[in-house]
């Protein structure tokens, strides 16, 4: 590899890291009141109106920007199926690390049985300072070199402190192993989402799409 090309590559990665840092500042916060450029909207697969209405959430993850668009979630539960078949080799709604079923029927006055179709998959935010990890008495939740939080099953005693501590109760005690289990950002849920309601946009794509809006 020539030096010039190597330099370019490093520049590119630096830019991506800067983009990620920028988005981290608003991870999970409402975007209402902001305008989003056309190139970013097309990347997120949403419209400005959906951003304004609060239907879209963005979450910063180590591998990309996680976009959840509840206007597009049709409740098929394939995210939960793919999560568990890939990670557990069995199929379950309860153990899934992405959670739609609990929102599908009835969620705070919304859902299938509340006469509207407002539901969405809850996802792990891979918090920089994870409440789950902080709460674990056995320090069984650790971050890998990319910042993805994992459960060390050897240390986990299945006490459920992480489940309680997480504001969104995303970790789950697996009913059979009696160990905590949580999202490790494998991406199976988003890859299998049949309406693109759940997607992970890689940082290089976000970085590239963010460029044209820069003033310089």
């Amino acid at each position: 590899m020539s030096e010039v090309k190597k330099e370019n590559k490093i520049d590119k990665l630096l830019n991506q890291e800067m983009t990620r840092r920028k988005f981290m500042k608003i991870s999970g916060k409402s975007l209402a009141g902001l305008t989003v450029s056309a190139s970013l909207l097309s990347l997120f697969g949403c419209t400005q109106e959906q951003v304004d209405s609060g239907a879209v959430s963005l979450w910063t993850t180590p591998t990309g920007l996680l976009v959840v668009n509840q206007a597009k979630c049709t409740g098929c539960q394939r995210c939960e199926i793919n999560c568990t078949v890939v990670n557990d080799g069995m199929v379950s709604s309860h153990t899934s690390r992405v959670k739609i079923t609990r929102n599908l029927m009835s969620n705070n006055g919304h859902g299938t049985y509340q006469d509207d179709w407002v539901y969405y998959p809850d996802t792990c935010r891979q918090c920089d300072v994870p409440a789950c990890g902080e709460a674990c008495p056995k320090e069984a939740i650790y971050a890998d070199d990319k910042g993805v939080k994992h459960v060390d099953e050897a240390k986990c005693v299945g006490c459920g402190a992480c489940v309680e501590a997480c504001p969104w109760h995303m970790p789950t005690i697996h009913p059979e192993t009696r160990k905590s289990t949580k999202c490790i950002l494998c991406g199976a849920c988003a890859e299998g989402c049949v309406t693109g309601a759940l997607s992970i946009v890689p940082w290089d794509a976000v970085t590239a799409a963010a460029q044209p809006t820069r003033k310089n």
């Binding site: 949403c46 419209t47 407002v118 890859e191 299998g192 989402c193 049949v194 309406t195 693109g196």
Partner: peptide, 22 residues
């Protein structure tokens, strides 16, 4: 009437799993 305005169902090419739902 989708939340946040019109959702265009677009094209759904063979092989694109994330568009089958449309």
């Amino acid at each position: 009437k989708a939340e946040g305005g019109f959702v265009d169902m677009g094209e759904q090419p063979v092989g694109d799993i994330d568009k089958i739902g449309y």
